[in-house]
């Protein structure tokens, strides 16, 4: 189990690295469009102050045996849900654990997706992103937050809440020059923004998957170590008991012999 988790973790981190260029280039394009046409706005870039609800996309695993992985992210998500008021939160659970926990706490779960973390696949994730931005565009949600576990290293993973929608471009960064946009700047935004939402959701899934397998690897390692320790203690106790019984038998035999003489 430890080795299986280790190889799955490596696969997920490699996939994370591979998907970074897309995010970087997509943001650069968006900045370029907004620089060349500052008056332009897009529904995905604007908060919806009229809506009362927020959507929380919670990434957990389907199964346990992953140490503190699920506990930590669920705790962070619950704290956020309580801060905004459980009534104002709707949850989209990717992975069974999170959806179950939030439902028990009294939040409304609007969608469940499971079995994504075993072998993450981009197309399987598209419905998640779609539910998020369609709900947002319809004005049902004030904002959409991703709750996932950030993979920092094999030993450290941190729960993270990241606002997915409205998208906030970081205009400080450079990029963008005089482009010619075909057919028009707004159409370019229309195409790039939803793709970016999908990619960011995909990122969160990969980070979460890498974290899950890292946590499971650690949990399995300490389980193996604990089992080994226990085995050592038991072997020692067994040997002691065996030695004691042998000694006693010899004592009895020699005692019996002495009594006969």
């Amino acid at each position: 189990m430890e080795l299986v988790a280790a190889s799955k973790m490596r696969r997920a981190t490699a996939a994370t690295m591979r998907s970074r260029p897309y995010t970087r280039e997509a943001w650069a394009t968006i900045r370029a469009v907004l620089r060349s046409a500052p008056e332009l706005t897009h529904p995905l870039l604007k908060a919806k102050p009229m809506a009362t609800k927020s959507l929380l996309i919670l990434f957990t695993s389907d199964r346990g045996l992953a140490g503190g992985f699920n506990v930590n992210i669920i705790r962070a998500a619950l704290a956020e849900a309580r801060r905004q008021g459980l009534k104002n939160i709707e949850v989209l659970g990717v992975g069974r654990r999170g959806a179950d926990a939030l439902e028990r706490a009294g939040a409304k779960v609007v969608g469940r997706f499971s079995a994504l973390s075993n072998n993450p696949n981009f197309t399987d994730l598209l419905p998640v992103a779609r539910m998020a931005f369609e709900g947002f565009l319809k004005g049902e949600y004030r904002n959409v937050t991703l709750a996932y576990t950030d993979f920092i290293s094999g030993i450290t993973q941190k729960p993270r809440l990241h606002e997915l929608l409205p998208l906030t471009p970081d205009m400080e960064k450079n990029g963008g020059m005089d482009y010619k946009f075909e057919p028009s700047p707004i159409r370019v935004l229309d195409r790039v923004l939803p793709a970016l939402v999908e990619t960011m959701t995909w990122h969160a899934l990969l980070e979460s998957t890498a974290s899950e397998h890292a946590a499971r690897m650690m949990a399995m390692k300490s389980a193996s170590d604990a089992a080994k320790d226990m085995l050592d203690t038991l072997t020692f106790t067994y040997n002691q008991a065996r030695q004691a019984s042998i000694t006693q038998e010899i004592a009895e035999i020699s005692g019996g012999k002495a009594a006969l003489e």
Partner: peptide
């Protein structure tokens, strides 16, 4: 969307669907 284009070196900056 506006038809097939071929990009050669020295093309002006362009973003197209």
């Amino acid at each position: 969307e506006d038809g097939e284009i071929t990009v050669l070196p020295g093309h002006i900056p362009l973003a197209s669907l």
